[in-house]
């Protein structure tokens, strides 16, 4: 098991190197004069000179890359060309918002997707199955921002049931320690605010979670159907086990395996989708920050966000793979 984790960690190294080369190239590829491209209207001769030496653009390529790599490894992820704020500090204040949103979406996708998939598998071929297939088809076919806008119109504008902007009532005052409001409101003992945060979270989570939900429901359905046809499930029935036991112990224990992998893979899509969702719901997270950065031609921010998101994706999938190995004795003992 330890060997397995080490092997997986080692396998991530070439990917990280590739990623760093790609992102290094990204800043270099920006068309024309880097000053024009990066600084845009903020351009002054001094800023330009500073930028060039800051980025080391006057030195040979390989040296520039090494510098970039070392800086990145030491935690220096560059700074904004607009306000010179270091990336990491700003990122850390924004990130909890994205974490909260992604968590809500994942919870929604798993909490609804898996039961739907199981139900569809149990009624395979029936109208319930058809309905669920239809819902998941719709889920993968509707863009997050269209669904988001539709939810805003229906539940916010027409019905007025739920807030459609922000993470919490703007007038709320309390100690935010972690930045994750679900936790902070509870720590502050403000149940009323906690409920408010949850209410703010509902619509964005549904919008962002719809695609993973559809994918998870599909894979759960397929996995349950496949496992249900396995010989060992027939064996379990032939032993006279109760149907409930057959389902929970023999079918689901095996059907989880592909589902966990797919859940891990959804994290990339969720982080990407957060960019759009945060825009729709005026959600204070990394996504909206990136959109602002694009508009301001603040490329170092875009560059480092891509890097951090990719690393998060790799780490999450590493964790999922290890979890998979723990669930699956065949791998565990290799």
């Amino acid at each position: 098991m330890g060997r397995y984790i080490v092997r997986r960690l080692l396998a991530a190294i070439p990917v990280l190197i590739g990623l760093s080369i790609l992102l290094f190239a990204y800043i270099r590829i920006l068309p024309g004069d880097p000053c024009v491209a990066i600084l845009g209207q903020h351009r002054t001769p001094e800023a330009c000179a500073a930028l060039i030496s800051n980025l080391g653009l006057d030195r040979p390529l390989w040296e520039q890359y090494i510098t970039y790599l070392l800086k990145t490894l030491s935690g220096d992820l560059g700074s904004s060309v607009v306000n010179s704020q270091p990336f990491l500090a700003e990122f850390l204040t924004r990130f909890p918002g994205t974490v909260e949103l992604t968590f809500g979406a994942l919870l929604f996708a798993i909490g609804v997707g898996i039961p739907l998939g199981r139900l569809a598998a149990r009624k395979v071929g029936g109208w319930v199955d058809g309905l669920i297939t239809g819902v998941s088809l719709f889920g993968v076919s509707i863009p997050v921002f269209v669904l988001g806008l539709a939810l805003v119109v229906i539940f916010g504008v027409i019905l007025g049931w739920l807030p459609t902007q922000g993470r919490i009532d703007a007038r709320a005052r309390f100690d935010a320690t972690s930045g994750i409001l679900l936790i902070d409101t509870l720590l502050a003992g403000r149940l009323d605010l906690f409920v408010d945060v949850v209410r703010h979270l509902i619509l964005p989570s549904i919008a962002l979670g719809s695609i993973p939900l559809a994918i998870i429901a599909r894979i759960t359905r397929a996995s349950v159907i496949e496992v249900a046809n396995e010989d060992y499930v027939r064996t379990a029935r032939s032993k006279g086990l109760k149907e409930k036991t057959v389902d929970s112990r023999h079918v689901m224990r095996n059907a989880w395996l592909p589902v966990t992998t797919v859940v891990g893979l959804q994290v990339g899509g969720l982080l990407g989708g957060a960019v759009l969702t945060e825009t729709v719901f005026v959600w204070n997270g990394v996504g909206r920050w990136v959109v602002d950065a694009i508009q301001n031609h603040d490329y170092p921010i875009v560059q480092s966000t891509i890097l951090v998101f990719a690393v998060i994706f790799l780490v999450v999938n590493l964790v999922v793979d290890v979890g998979y190995a723990l669930l699956n004795p065949k791998i565990r003992y290799q």
Binding site: G18, Y26, G272, G273, V275
Partner: peptide, 18 residues
Amino acid sequence: DVFLSIPSILLAIGIVTA
């Protein structure tokens, strides 16, 4: 692997901005 580790919309954003 490198390209697949970047959320596809972010990758596209990166390319269009570049």
